[in-house]
């Protein structure tokens, strides 16, 4: 059975509202949601990318997903509204705090660049106004090969009949071009009464011209591949990743962690640890190197 996800719940500072929103999402059967932080990139001045609020500060208790008896999973997502090519910076350190990275291109050139080169997980489609450009097959196929998904939000369609027309038009135009293959449907609302259940959303996606199976994928398995794609962005092809461990605080615990990552024989490593402490020190030095080396590079450039 596939898990349902809603990868766009806009961040609100209002804790009570966020709580009801999360409870409604869990009640409707979404087992994973992403809290979305929108960053409007500007050409002038220094840009501050917002830092995600830690989850334990946002919610006290995770609501239980209906029908799965498991707490809901909450992720952080950053959406960058790009109006110029240099607004997206490759490998910026601020992006790493987020689980999912999305861009919202506003011009055809940016859309092309986002599909072809940007290392992101989701490309948002404008739904509140007429499309400023036509979708072309070449960038959309390239995005599909790279595993980047297109996102259509449905909340605006509930709010207003003009927006509904634009949402349907743009959704239809998108599905016409990519045959409904890599589309995800998410809510994009901070009001609990504008959230809809996963099967409702799948049914709604059929209005975009997707088949029943594709529409269901749009709320389940395509979202899952977004998460997996996000994992590979953080790591080297999803195989290896480096963790910077703090040296001073609790050296013993962190050392055992790093050792088990590096060598394939944890028992022998443990033995060594008990025999001599100097050994563990050298190992931790080695594992600490890659992140610090990266840091130097970024500071130099």
């Amino acid at each position: 059975m596939s898990l349902f996800m809603d990868l766009n719940l806009p961040f609100t500072a209002d804790k009570k509202r966020l709580k009801t929103l999360l409870e409604t999402a869990a009640h409707l059967g979404f087992s994973t949601v992403a809290i979305n932080y929108v960053h409007k990139a500007q050409s002038k001045g220094k840009q501050e990318i917002p830092k995600p609020t830690p989850l334990d500060q946002l919610v006290d208790e995770l609501p239980i997903v209906q029908g799965r008896s498991r707490p809901i999973k909450i992720l952080n997502r950053l959406t960058i509204l790009v109006t110029d090519t240099n607004h997206y910076r490759t490998n910026a350190a601020e992006y790493k705090a987020y689980d999912i990275l999305a861009v919202h291109p506003t011009t055809e050139k940016l859309f092309h660049a986002a599909c072809m080169t940007f290392d992101v997980d989701i490309i948002c489609i404008t739904i509140t106004e007429r499309l400023p450009f036509f979708f072309k097959r070449a960038p959309i196929n390239a995005a599909r090969e790279r595993g980047v998904m297109f996102e259509v939000c449905y909340a605006a369609a509930i709010r207003d009949s003009t927006m509904r027309r634009y949402t349907l038009t743009n959704g239809l135009a998108l599905v016409e071009r990519n045959n409904g293959k890599n589309v995800i449907i998410s809510s994009g609302t901070d009001k609990a009464l504008e959230l809809r259940g996963p099967y409702d959303v799948a049914n709604l996606a059929q209005l975009f011209g997707m088949s029943e199976a594709e529409a269901k994928d749009g709320v389940s398995s395509n979202c899952r591949s977004v998460l997996l794609h996000a994992e590979t962005r953080k790591t080297a092809s999803g195989i290896i990743y480096t963790v910077k461990t703090p040296k001073d605080t609790e050296p013993k615990e962190t050392d055992t962690d790093t050792i088990s990552m590096v060598t394939d024989e944890p028992p022998s490593a443990k033995k060594r640890k008990t025999s001599a402490e100097t050994d563990t020190d050298t190992v931790s030095m080695v594992t600490d190197e890659p992140p610090s080396a990266k840091k130097q590079k970024t500071s130099a450039s």
Partner: peptide, 26 residues
């Protein structure tokens, strides 16, 4: 079915107050 269901999904207001249809079973 698809038409009725989608119109229920996109119904957001009842007499100027927000509302939502929750489909319990099909």
């Amino acid at each position: 079915l698809v038409r009725l269901w989608s119109s229920l999904t996109l119904l957001g207001f009842f007499q100027q107050q927000r509302c939502a249809f929750r489909v319990l079973q099909v």
